[in-house]
């Protein structure tokens, strides 16, 4: 049923936006982390969205329909924030500490945008739900 496929498409949007929020939260949580398993300070992460086709052999009508998927999480190549803190245990020879390249403002903006997009998908699912409910009432 084509309307159920439309719900699946929006579900893919919900999933992708939630992953984005998770990554953004991790960035915020680690905005002051100077030590990581890979060594060095925490590097800001970003999700990569890609449109994925929903078409399959069983549902010809879904051909050309695109959902969304997070195909990967990439490191932000921007430089670390160097601050002069000679007393810090991770300070280099010159007394500078490399802090993560995370900007709280940028992450907050990202989180707001993600939650708006999430809400848009929820609204779409609700509209489709109403449409399906009405369809079931045909002929009653």
């Amino acid at each position: 049923m084509s309307l159920l496929t439309a719900i699946d498409v929006n579900a893919s949007g919900l999933k992708a936006q939630r992953q984005r929020v998770e990554v953004s939260s991790a960035n915020l949580a680690n905005s002051q982390t100077t030590r990581t398993e890979e060594g060095g300070p925490y590097r800001r992460k970003d999700v990569i969205f890609q449109a994925v086709s929903f078409g399959n052999a069983f549902d010809a009508a879904a051909r050309g329909l695109n959902g969304v998927e997070v195909i990967g999480v990439a490191d932000d190549p921007a430089e670390f924030d160097r601050r002069y803190e000679p007393g810090h245990p991770d300070a280099d020879a010159e007394g500078y500490v490399a802090y993560p390249n995370v900007s709280a403002i940028e992450e907050m903006a990202n989180l707001v945008e993600a939650s708006r997009s999430y809400e848009a998908n929820i609204s779409a699912v609700n509209i489709i739900k109403t449409m399906i409910t009405r369809t079931l009432e045909i002929g009653r």
Partner: peptide
């Protein structure tokens, strides 16, 4: 219903780089 699919696809891809609305 078909059009709803297209619109659902657009909402899901609201932040996908390079996506063109259907």
């Amino acid at each position: 219903a078909r059009r709803q699919q297209a619109l659902a696809s657009n909402i899901a891809n609201i932040d996908t780089p390079g996506y063109k609305s259907l």
